[in-house]
């Protein structure tokens, strides 16, 4: 490869962008996470592993990390359950109906993150429409405390991440030839068996990127847990921001961020390894 290679030449802007806005900051953050705490500055001059020692040695941080990873996992699975039927219907739609459905699916992304979360705060308030609706139906007798619960955080995250799951799955479903369904049917498969043996595995090339996208976004979500999760429970992003901008412990905040990144990469890597065979077989 030389600079005369046009492919490499065209890649230069992308490489420059990634270098300046990803490689440099991450290197800087890794470096920061090994700095000693500063007295008057946000960080000191010497290097230490004390921040990592502190995180590993303290069950509190393990708990927050676990909560973040599990919450993101729950968001991802719920998103998958909600999105698959939507993607299925979208994959069958044609013409204006398809355009309309695309617009509906993308709608959560068209609202700003603050506006959307304030909307949830109003909707989930003690005397808000959600409670009034449930009281009106007679399902509950007392208004439920919905706001500042983990459940609401999950619900709000599922809401905004559904498009990231629906679109790739819809794409994968559209790529499945209808004759495959007919073929399996003619071989004796029931609708359930057709779904289990043919449609589900062949839509995995859409499920996989959808799950990865949603998981990574959910682990890193900050605004929604901060606004809807309340002060009782912490997630890694809220903790990290607190260290960086609240107490100005840049090295410790960086160490937390690195721990979160590495954990996320491990989860994604494990998922990829476990599904590698299915992916290899089902990709077009």
């Amino acid at each position: 490869m030389s600079l005369r290679n046009p492919k490499l030449f065209l890649a230069i802007p992308a490489i420059a962008l990634i270098f300046v806005f990803m490689i440099l900051p991450i290197t800087n953050m890794v470096d920061m996470s090994f700095r000693t705490p500063g007295q008057s500055d946000p960080f000191g001059d010497d290097y230490t592993t004390m921040h990592y020692d502190r995180i590993v040695g303290d069950a509190y941080y393990w708990g927050v990390l676990l909560r973040s990873l599990l919450t993101a996992g729950a968001v991802t699975l719920l998103c998958l359950l909600v999105s698959y039927p939507i993607a299925w219907h979208m994959s069958k739609a044609k013409g204006m109906k398809a355009v309309f459905l695309y617009a509906c699916i993308a709608s959560p992304l068209m609202t700003g993150v603050l506006v959307r979360n304030f909307g949830w705060m109003i909707a989930a308030a003690l005397n808000g429409p959600l409670n009034e609706f449930l009281l009106g139906l007679g399902i509950i007798q007392q208004p439920l405390r919905l706001l500042f619960t983990q459940g609401l955080v999950i619900l709000a995250l599922v809401h905004v991440f559904v498009p990231f799951m629906v679109l790739p799955i819809n794409n994968a479903l559209r790529n499945i030839s209808p004759t495959l369904i007919e073929a399996s049917t003619s071989m004796g498969a029931t609708r359930r068996q057709v779904f289990r043996d043919i449609i589900l595995p062949l839509s995995f090339p859409g499920i996989y990127p959808g799950m990865i996208l949603v998981y990574v976004l959910a682990v890193a979500a900050y605004v929604t847990p901060a606004l809807l999760g309340g002060q009782m429970v912490s997630y890694m992003p809220t903790l990290i921001i607190g260290e960086l901008t609240g107490t100005f412990q840049w090295p410790f905040g960086s160490a937390l961020a690195i721990v979160l990144s590495v954990s996320t990469i491990l989860v994604v890597g494990l998922f990829t390894a476990l599904t590698a065979r299915l992916m290899e077989r089902s990709k077009a």
Partner: peptide
């Protein structure tokens, strides 16, 4: 799925 007929398709329709 209960007719018990074999079908061969133009595009083969093999499960990839």
């Amino acid at each position: 799925n209960r007719r018990g007929f074999g079908v061969v398709f133009q595009n083969y329709a093999l499960f990839p």
